[in-house]
Design a protein around this nucleic acid. Structure first.
Lengths: 190, 190
DNA sequence: CGCGCGATTGAGTAATTTCAAATCTAGTGG
DNA sequence: CCACTAGATTTGAAATTACTCAATCGCGCG
């Protein structure tokens, strides 16, 4: 059932079926259609989501026109407006579905309760947060010191599945260039 | 003595003097002179550091010439090559002192031991990691959707102390532009 | 068959980089 | 107190790169 989440947690810390049943009770299942929103600017952000399947994007809109992608999320990824979720403030980004998707949501109160009651879940979330931190540092460095072309190739190598699901326009919005510039990259030479 | 660290932890979770004495025993004090290295590319990264005073920078070198700054660190900040520290791999960045500095180091084994033995320390480090994650997300968005000038002003507003300690060249290397371009920004002609 | 979305191409414009040189500033020793 | 020096900042000008705007192309789907 929620075997995906169980395996995901088990990669970091072993848990029994009883423990997982309990953990599981803190999550709410949601099924979403393509283009459906999970988070919208200005709203409360009550949940952090674990992705069971599909594909989503978290992005910021410049003057309601230009889209900049903060993150994608596929199976086994976590996603929300973290700033708003942790601080219980209004969302500053949108999150919507690139494909039909299924997620498990946990609200902040339940997450804290789970962490307080089960040391191993606090451990689990610390580890996840640490990995996420490292990944974001790598992305920042790549924004600073690599060309768009290198970043494109690294992304392709790291998440080949993403390129099946996501149009190039969105890849460009993630890499930080216009779609036209990205398009010109892989037919470079004269 | 290590009152700075104690206050820092206490902002997230209350601790007794006895507890802090124990926590404290896991850390090693280091005093460093300006320009001294804490982490060097290719070396092992045995410690994560809490900054008691001074100022440091973590940066990557392009072809041994161009410097890109991943983070600064002042009092109350944590710094290391996290990718190398968590995964126990070789450093890919340098960290050195912009000023004479004092830090407290903790190695990975001790950090894990502390987290395993004291749930509240696991909680503390999870919270810190979460805040760090949010801060990095904000920085990524600002790299994607704001101009250099806006980023400069945001940084100035957020960490005015930094501008007392750090030459503009390094600010430019943090913001992701050349020092010349940064210099031209605050005399924005006509 | 035609619509619509995504991708590509072209041309002109704007912004940033690079390299070089000039200026400015703070600290040092005489 | 002054001259000197190293580091930091600024300025200029050319070259590069990316952007914008517009038009076109390609393809899957109803």
């Amino acid at each position: 059932m929620n075997e995906i989440l169980k395996q995901h947690i088990a990669q970091i810390t072993p848990i029994t079926d009883e423990e997982f049943a309990y953990i599981s009770s803190f999550f709410t299942y949601k099924k979403l259609r393509k283009h459906q929103f999970l988070v919208e600017v200005g709203n409360d952000v009550n949940f952090e989501y674990f992705v069971l399947g599909g594909c989503l994007k978290a992005y910021h809109l410049d003057n309601n026109t230009k889209e900049h992608i903060l993150q994608f999320a596929m199976q086994d990824w976590w996603i929300t407006d973290y700033q708003a979720f942790f601080n219980q403030t209004k969302a500053t980004i949108f999150i919507d579905c690139i494909e039909n998707s299924e997620v498990l949501g946990i609200n902040l109160h339940n997450k804290e309760k789970l962490c307080a009651e089960m040391h191993k879940m606090e451990h689990f979330f610390r580890k996840k947060s640490n990995s996420g931190y490292v990944a974001l540092q790598r992305r920042i460095l790549s924004l600073l010191n690599t060309t768009t072309k290198e970043r494109y190739e690294q992304l392709l190598q790291l998440y080949p599945q993403l390129f099946q699901k996501v149009p190039k326009t969105l890849i460009a919005a993630y890499l930080g260039v216009s779609r036209e510039t990205l398009s010109r990259l892989y037919t470079p030479e004269k």
